[in-house]
């Protein structure tokens, strides 16, 4: 069940896109960790830069994606810049979307 919810959360987050790159935030490598505990889903993520002007749009979309999962878990989204995001964090799927 735990794994299922984490997997569902990961899939839901694939519907949230970095507006500039046009790639979902999972394949952009912005999601560092997803965990489920006591009806809450904790997402540890980063942004492409600390001053990212799209931060509020992305974070609101992440919270909505988690809250809309079948068991309506409470989203607990945490932001970290350690380690900072680099383009090398883009997944193979993400690179394919970018034409590599």
């Amino acid at each position: 069940m735990m794994t299922d919810l984490v997997d569902l959360a990961r899939e839901a987050l694939k519907q949230v896109y970095d507006p500039e790159a046009g790639v979902n935030i999972v394949d952009m490598g912005l999601i560092y960790d997803i965990a489920e505990e006591n009806g809450s889903v904790q997402v540890v993520m980063t942004l492409t830069s600390e001053g990212c002007p799209a931060a509020s749009q992305i974070l609101v979309a992440v919270e909505e994606a988690i809250a809309n999962l079948p068991s309506s878990p409470t989203p607990d989204v945490r932001i970290t810049f350690d380690p900072p995001w680099t383009p090398e964090m883009i997944t193979a799927d993400g690179r394919a979307l970018l034409g590599q």
Binding site: Y17, P19, P53, A54, Q57, I58, V60, A61, E64
Partner: peptide, 15 residues
């Protein structure tokens, strides 16, 4: 894109 609201308030792509 930061001012445009997509479905469910999600970010709209540049394209």
């Amino acid at each position: 894109t930061m001012h445009a609201g997509g479905p469910g308030g999600r970010p709209v792509s540049v394209s």
